[in-house]
C-alpha cells in the first residue's frame, strides 16, 4: 500500500509540469490564427487523419527501419573493429589519429556524398547511418577493453584461457557497460542522420513528410511530424535504456 502511494507520489512529482505545459499550450494556442503556430487541437486532428489514412504508418516504418538497420550495421562493425583494435596496444597507437578524425567528423557531411553518389532510395541512407554509427561504438569498445583490470588479464593468461573464449567470456562482458554507452550515442546520431537524410532527398519517411508539408505550407502537419520525430527519438531511447538495464543487470548488482 505504501509502495503504491510512494510510486503515485513520485509519478505526480514528475508529471505535473509536463501535463501543465501541454494544457497551457492547448488552451493558449486555441483559436490562434497565426499560420506558423497552429492550435494544438488542429495538430492533433491532423495526426488522427494521417494515422487513419495509413500514410503516416508507412513513413514511420521507413524511418524506424533505416535507423535500426543502420544502427545494427554500425554496432556490429564497431564492436568487431573495436575489439581487434582494443586488444592490441600497437594497433591502437597507430590507428589513433584516423579514429579521432572519423569520430570528430560532422557526420551529416557524408550525407550529400553518399546520397549524391548512390541515389535517394533507402539503401544509401542506411549506409550513411551505419557509417556514422560505427565510430562512437568502436571508440567506446576500445576504451572499455582498455579499462579492464590488468589483474583480470593476468588471470586469463595464468589459466591459459584461449583467445576466443576470453574474448566472449572476459573481454566483451568486461567492456559491455562502455559499449552500451557507445551504442546510446550512436542511437541519437542515427536519429539525427535519419532526419537530415530524409529532408535532404527522399521519397518516404517522417523527415520527408516534414519537408513536403513545409513546402505545401501545411504547418499543422509540419508540427505534427516534428513532434512525432521527437516522440520517436524519445521512445527509441526509452526502449534502449530498458535493454541496457537488462543486459547490464549483473554489472549493477555487483556494483551495489
Amino acid at each position: 500500500m505504501r509502495s503504491t502511494r510512494s510510486f503515485l507520489l513520485a509519478f505526480l512529482e514528475q508529471a505535473w509540469l509536463p501535463v501543465l505545459l501541454v494544457v497551457i499550450w492547448w488552451f493558449a494556442s486555441e483559436g490562434n490564427t497565426n499560420p506558423f503556430f497552429p492550435p494544438l487541437s488542429k495538430i492533433w486532428d491532423s495526426f488522427v487523419t494521417e494515422m487513419s489514412s495509413g500514410q503516416m504508418e508507412l513513413h514511420l516504418w521507413a524511418s524506424t527501419r533505416n535507423i535500426l538497420i543502420g544502427l545494427a550495421v554500425g554496432v556490429v562493425v564497431g564492436v568487431v573493429g573495436g575489439t581487434v583494435i582494443g586488444l592490441s596496444r600497437r594497433l591502437r597507437a597507430v590507428l589513433n589519429p584516423y579514429l579521432q578524425f572519423f569520430r570528430t567528423l560532422p557526420q551529416v557531411a557524408i550525407i550529400p556524398i553518399i546520397i549524391g553518389a548512390f541515389g535517394i532510395t533507402a539503401v544509401p541512407k542506411i549506409w550513411a547511418i551505419g557509417f556514422a554509427c560505427i565510430w562512437p561504438v568502436l571508440l567506446n569498445t576500445v576504451d572499455g577493453i582498455r579499462a579492464i583490470d590488468p589483474g583480470v588479464r593476468d588471470m586469463v593468461d595464468a589459466y591459459r584461457i584461449t583467445t576466443w573464449r576470453s574474448i566472449f567470456r572476459v573481454v566483451l562482458p568486461g567492456a559491455l557497460p562502455q559499449i552500451m554507452a557507445g551504442i546510446r550515442i550512436s542511437l541519437s546520431v542515427a536519429v539525427v542522420l535519419m532526419v537530415v537524410s530524409e529532408i535532404y532527398a527522399a521519397t518516404e519517411g517522417v523527415g520527408y513528410f516534414i519537408h513536403i508539408t513545409t513546402g505545401l505550407f501545411q504547418t499543422d502537419k509540419t508540427w505534427m511530424g516534428t513532434l512525432l520525430v521527437g516522440l520517436m527519438g524519445y521512445l527509441l531511447s526509452v526502449i534502449f535504456l530498458l535493454i541496457e538495464k537488462r543486459a547490464l543487470r549483473w554489472y549493477h548488482e555487483s556494483a551495489s
Binding site: E13, P18, S188, G207, T219, G233, Y234
Partner: peptide
C-alpha cells in the same frame, strides 16, 4: 524531478527536425 521528463524528451529529440518549423 518536475523537469525530468522534459529533460529526457529534450535530450533524445533530434533538434534538427525543428529546422523546417524554425525556417517558417
Amino acid at each position: 524531478r518536475a523537469t525530468r521528463f522534459l529533460l529526457d524528451l529534450g535530450r533524445s529529440f533530434p533538434v534538427i527536425a525543428l529546422l523546417p518549423v524554425m525556417v517558417l
